[in-house]
Design a protein around this nucleic acid. Structure first.
Lengths: 76, 76
DNA sequence: ATATAATGTCAAGTATATTTTACTTATTGC
DNA sequence: GCAATAAGTAAAATATACTTGACATTATAT
């Protein structure tokens, strides 16, 4: 419910591996809607889920979840 | 409820800064019991809370939450 | 030995992450 | 165009992160 910022890094990492949201969700043991909500920044996964996502996508926590993503707007 | 493994890295990082659990909890905006539970591995913080902890302790996500801590036992 | 602060733990409640079902809107290929 | 798959969104239910308050234990110091 609290907006967090879209996670485009996951989307990109998925693209690299040609994985669909559904496929990633299944690989990670979570519902498709949950994966979507995370990419949309609609909430705030647990560290465990983050670790699982990183493992599947072959990225580090810092790479995928390191910085809060931009919050829309405030661009010149 | 699901055991996760104690997080000794947080404890160590706290020690480096001579910070008490209470102090860290306050700095991070969470209850003392929650911080304790996380260090005890009694649950599974949100990525947001992890980020806040890292910020206060001056460590990266990978440093503090990178690998699942050992699960007790299985040592020669 | 006795204060005092730091830590560990438990139970009951509240907030919120996650699921399920279901419907809509892209997107891609035929 | 049409079918099929991928992605976005929503509401109601369930699981679990987190709070509050209280008490027990382990340091640390005087």
């Amino acid at each position: 419910m609290i907006p967090i910022g879209r996670n485009l890094k996951i989307k990109a990492a998925r693209a690299e591996r040609d994985m669909t949201q559904k496929a990633l969700a299944e690989a990670v043991g979570v519902s498709r809607q949950t994966m979507n909500a995370i990419e949309q920044g609609d909430y705030n996964p647990t560290i465990r889920l983050c670790r699982a996502i990183c493992k599947v996508l072959g990225k580090s926590l810092d790479e995928l979840f390191g910085e809060e993503e931009e919050h829309e707007g405030s661009k010149v």
